[in-house]
């Protein structure tokens, strides 16, 4: 009888101690809490509106012609800055990135670029590249389009009629051991209002300024978990250029959106990590001519709009 009682007590104690709220804390907790809280004086933007289009697999965002261009799994959507859907057209396969100008829309599929007119009708598909190509970002000027190929760690230069006119890997000469270091499929580039090409060398946590034919003109880099740097193996995953030439950056891992001067110093925080609790994917970014920042939140499947605090 006593033995039975002891056994029952042991079983009950074991069951009670196995309850989720009774389980011991993780003695090996990995925490970056010290970096997730940000000085509120640095947070100079506020989230004003969000809009969503349902359970869509959104892939990329661009702003041009006072419209937002969104690519999602097999569709291109044209949206007003307030979130009103203006047009939607079907794509032949899953896109990876998008850019636009007054002349048209350019969509990066895995290994080729599709050229569309401003209303979303296909003009032509450009010549496909090799099988190891993974296009992750596009930037267009009046006559030139740049494409970032994470698979081959190179930047491709096209004429806007689709003729491939060159490429570069970030190496100055053959003696250089490395050019672009792209550990994961995040490789972004942009052309600012002065016509300067900036490429993010994510593995070096660096912004690199190149001439259109691939000569390095300058760079800055900062690998750090702290707010002035870029964390993780390969960041910033996405970036866009503000009208004044400064960069909006989005980091993966510890997700945060910041603004850096063209020379690298951190200017402001747009959205601290607390705004992305539980998320790990860096939002793709687009900027309006007035400086509003559109962040494509992949995990919440919404567009989040940030504006400068008044």
């Amino acid at each position: 009888m006593v033995l039975a009682a002891v056994i029952v007590v042991l079983i009950v104690t074991d069951v009670m101690n196995s309850r989720p709220d009774k389980r011991p804390d993780n003695p090996y907790e990995y925490t970056v809490d010290q970096f997730t809280s940000v000085d509120t004086a640095l947070v100079k933007y506020t989230e004003t509106i969000d809009f969503t289009f349902g359970d869509l697999d959104l892939r990329g965002i661009a702003f041009a012609n006072n419209r937002l261009y969104l690519v999602e799994d097999n569709y291109l959507m044209v949206v007003s800055p307030e979130g009103e859907k203006l047009a939607k057209s079907e794509l032949p396969e899953s896109p990876g990135c998008v850019t636009a100008s007054s002349d048209g829309i350019y969509i990066g599929f895995r290994n080729y670029i599709g050229q569309y007119d401003p209303d979303g009708r296909l003009v032509k598909n450009w010549e496909p590249l090799n099988d190891t190509t993974v296009l992750t970002s596009l930037a267009v000027t009046d006559s030139t389009l740049f494409a970032a190929d994470a698979g081959n760690r190179r930047v491709l230069r096209y004429k806007t009629n689709g003729i491939l006119s060159g490429s570069f890997t970030g190496k100055r000469d053959s003696a250089d051991l490395h050019g672009f270091i792209i550990p994961s499929p995040y490789f972004d580039l942009a052309v600012n209002s002065d016509g300067e090409l900036w490429v993010v060398n994510t593995g070096k946590h660096a912004f690199e300024n190149y001439t259109f034919d691939g000569q390095l003109r300058g760079f800055w880099e900062n690998a750090a978990m702290t707010i002035d740097g870029f964390s993780g193996c390969c960041n910033p995953a996405h970036m866009a250029v503000l009208p004044d030439g400064s960069f909006v950056t989005a980091e993966k891992g510890m997700v945060r959106i910041k603004i850096h001067k063209a020379s690298g110093e951190v200017l402001a925080v747009v959205a601290p990590p607390e705004e992305f609790k539980g998320e790990t994917y860096a939002p793709d970014l687009a900027v309006s001519p007035s400086g509003d920042i559109y962040a494509l939140d992949y995990e919440r499947k919404m567009i989040r709009v940030f504006q400068l605090k008044k």
Partner: peptide, 14 residues
């Protein structure tokens, strides 16, 4: 098997 490296790699790497 503490998993700290796994957490760090998953959070900031591949």
């Amino acid at each position: 098997a503490c998993g700290k490296c796994v957490k760090g790699c998953g959070s900031f790497g591949n």
